[in-house]
Design a protein around this nucleic acid. Structure first.
Lengths: 196, 196
DNA sequence: GGCCATGGACGAAAACCTGATCACGCCGTC
DNA sequence: GACGGCGTGATCAGGTTTTCGTCCATGGCC
């Protein structure tokens, strides 16, 4: 999974620029890179500053550092095991995507606000929170209405809750047990992200 | 600075510096960080000392630690009339703060995530959402733990819900009908904002 | 009082910094 | 055209810093 990192070490920079770490250190000492140092004396560079540097030098900018290309997915399920499995599987199928998880509805709402995912994989059966209501909310709110919703439920397809959710209009619906490869395929299609 | 917390643990520092907690312990043992210890042997660092340390090492200073004048308040109540009255009154008493409103818990959680208020005025009686649970969440979550919570309820002070909320530890508690001048005064005090 | 997420200690492994040395291309001079 | 100076980047060794994984203690919450 593409990790959301805000600072880079010389090794990271070296890999991105296809040079050796020592060369990066040279650049730093020559004042060509704007870095700070840890108390231990290691260099760290801000990702934004690095991207700026790349642009100035006409370097190709790696996919995962381009903020505009970044795709974020939030996975919500109260079962930590499913959460882990799903995260791993999605990360494997879509290596460039940033994935976050929530174990309950309250946390999910907070994270949707701050993480601003492009897609949410939402287990409708959350303790104390109405999954359908969350869907309705997301669709009603200006800032969240474009988030793709992939609903997940262990209930039969003709259940009342499920029908409510479908009426609200989610982008995809899956029943448990999940076929994670299928979920990943659907997400990739929705987000227009290459599958691997 | 609107930080509730006056001291940081190694984990907090680690997160801010994008480093593992063990590394922070290294710095401490090397005398690079000015810390004190709890009787149990855990390290604590003063926020001000930490900010000073960051500045000295040219570290990027996280937004919530940066001294800034902008203060944001989110007011949550399901009664639109109260919402309007409160907003007007608060705006009048504290002209410099930015005020947002939510009419229900779902929206409130979303807004807390995106608006990142410094303080929340929270009506505990929200339809379909457990006000106490929201408080607990905010306190439990790293990113929201420092938000000041001003709880509001129409219930008597010895009500079960109210007691639960107080046990969680909100920063202030008011009963309806609200004395808005008092609420504003409390918020101003918490946020260290001048009252007018 | 008990539970559980968080924090600390410790050893091993990985990553990193320093400084010195070498290879290569560029440029001006002989 | 040959030569040496210069700048940039690669390579290597040795010591330091950071990370990782594990296990146990602490502290906040019920």
């Amino acid at each position: 999974m593409a990790v959301r990192r805000k600072s880079l070490s010389t090794g990271d920079i070296a890999r991105y620029c296809q040079v050796t770490p020592a060369t990066v250190v040279n650049w730093i000492k020559a004042g060509k890179l704007e870095v700070y140092t840890t108390p231990g004396g290691q260099y760290r560079m801000d990702v934004d500053a690095f991207v700026e540097f790349l642009e100035k030098n006409k370097f190709p900018i790696p996919e995962e550092l381009q903020p505009s290309n970044e795709r974020r997915i939030l996975v919500v399920d109260d079962d930590p095991e499913i959460l882990e499995l799903a995260t791993e599987s999605l990360a494997e199928h879509m290596p460039t995507v940033v994935i976050e998880t929530s174990q309950d509805g309250y946390d999910a709402l907070l994270k949707i606000g701050s993480f601003k995912p492009h897609a949410v994989v939402l287990d409708l059966m959350m303790p104390r929170v109405d999954g359908a209501e969350v869907c309705r909310r997301l669709r009603a709110n200006q800032d969240t209405r474009n988030i793709f919703i992939v609903a997940v439920s262990g209930l039969a397809a003709d259940n009342e809750l499920v029908r409510r959710v479908k009426r609200i209009g989610v982008d995809a619906f899956f029943t448990k047990p999940l076929d994670l490869a299928e979920v990943a395929k659907m997400l990739a299609k929705l987000l227009k992200v290459p599958v691997s």
